[in-house]
Design a binder for these strands. Structure first.
Lengths: 194, 194
DNA sequence: AATTATTTAATACAATTGTACTAAATAATT
DNA sequence: AATTATTTAGTACAATTGTATTAAATAATT
C-alpha cells in the first residue's frame, strides 16, 4: 500500500551524499544535517532511513568498499595475462583520477574515524592484502613466480608499495601521475614474475 | 616581575596533552576542554597560551615533526656505513614501538584534519621524500648507487614502500613486527646499493 | 472515495562545542 | 610591605550537535 520508494537505492543516495560531505568537510564536518541537505532530504526523512549517525557512516563506508570490490572483480574477469591483470587490479587500487581519489579519501577518513569508535573496530580492513595473497597463491600454483624469491617478503613489499603509492597519489596527485604509478608497479611486478 | 613560568615548555606540555587526547579520541574528540583537563589546566589558563584551537593543533603538529626530525638528525650524525645509516633512518620513520606508533597516528590525524582546514593547507609535508632524495643524491655523488638503476624510479619505489610500511605498522602492529619491517626495507636497499 | 501503511516535514531538547569575559591569585620587583 | 605584571580560575554565551517527537502528507490498496 505504501509508496514505491526503493529503500536500498535511497539509502545508497544518502551514502553518496555522505561521501561528498566527508570529502568537502572531513569526518568532523560530516553532520547529519549537512548530509541530509546534500541528499535533498529533511532531517526527519534522513532519520527514517538511518536511525543514527554511526549506522549511516558505517553503511556509507561499506558501500565504498563494495563498489571498489565490484570494479576489481570486473577486472579479474577480463581476458589477459595474469601479469597484466595483476597490474590492472593494482592500478585500480591506486587512485589516479578524481573519482577513485575521492573514494580513497573517504576511505581514509573512515579508517581514522573507526579507530576511535569501538563499535566499528571489528569491521574488516580493505581486503587488499588478502587480494594480493590470493594472487600470489594463484601464481605459485601456476609456476609464474620467479624462482628463488621469498614469497612472504615479496607479498609484504608489494603490499607496502601499493598502499604507499595510494597514499601519495591521494595526497599529491599533481606529483604522482598515472604513468608514474604504472611504471613503479610494473617494476615491482617484474621482480615477482618470471 | 612576573612568575617564572617557562612559556615554551608549558606550550610543549599542552601540545603533548593534545597528542594524548587525539590518540585517545581522534581529531573530532580533541576539544579544548579535554586537552586542558589532560594538561591539568583550566580552560582559561589554556586559552592564555593558545588563543584558539587551530593554533594549538598547528603547534602540536609542528612539534611532532620537530621531534621526529631531531631523532633522524641524531641518527645521521652517528658513525656507520651510508647503507646502515639509511636503514636506521627509515626504521625510525616506520613506527615499530608504541611511542613512534603514537606519533605516527597523531601525524596521520593531522594530515586528515589539515586537508579540510585551508589555513593549514600551506603547511609543508613530512619531509620524508626530501630526505630520501637527499640520501640518493649523496649516494650518487659517492658512487654508491648500483649501476644501471633508474634513480627517479627507485626513489619513488622506496618512498612508497616506506610510507606503506609506516601505514601498515600503525594499523596492524601485531602483524608487522620490527624484524619484518627491517627485512623489507633491507631488501629494498639491496636493490639500490651497489 | 475510504482506508491504511509508509514517508516526510518541522520543531524541540539536552548536551557539547569554541570562545569571551571578569575577578581573583600569584610572584617578582620596588 | 606595596606595587605591578603576569597567570589562573570560573562562569557565561551563542552556535551547533545528535536525537526524539509530533503531526502532516503521500500513495497504493480496498
Amino acid at each position: 500500500m505504501p509508496k514505491k520508494v526503493n529503500h536500498e537505492q535511497r539509502r545508497n543516495r544518502i551514502a553518496e551524499a555522505a561521501w561528498q560531505v566527508i570529502l568537502e568537510f572531513g569526518m568532523e564536518g560530516a553532520t547529519v544535517r549537512k548530509i541530509a541537505e546534500k541528499a535533498g532530504l529533511s532531517l526527519g526523512a534522513l532519520r527514517y532511513y538511518f536511525s543514527n549517525q554511526e549506522d549511516l557512516i558505517l553503511y556509507a563506508m561499506r558501500l565504498v568498499k563494495e563498489r571498489a570490490a565490484e570494479r576489481i572483480k570486473q577486472i579479474l574477469h577480463r581476458d589477459g595475462s595474469p601479469k597484466q591483470k595483476m597490474l590492472d587490479v593494482l592500478l585500480e587500487i591506486v587512485p589516479t583520477n578524481p573519482q577513485t581519489r575521492a573514494e580513497m579519501e573517504v576511505w581514509f577518513s573512515f579508517v581514522g574515524y573507526a579507530r576511535h569508535h569501538p563499535h566499528l573496530l571489528k569491521e574488516e580492513g580493505d581486503g587488499i592484502l588478502a587480494a594480493i595473497q590470493l594472487m600470489f597463491g594463484y601464481m605459485e600454483t601456476n609456476g609464474l613466480l620467479r624462482p628463488g624469491i621469498d614469497k612472504q617478503l615479496e607479498i609484504e613489499r608489494l603490499y607496502a608499495m601499493v598502499d604507499g603509492l595510494a597514499l601519495h597519489a591521494m595526497l599529491e596527485p599533481e606529483r604522482l601521475t598515472e604513468k608514474q604509478v604504472e611504471k613503479v608497479i610494473a617494476s615491482q611486478l617484474d621482480v615477482i614474475f618470471e
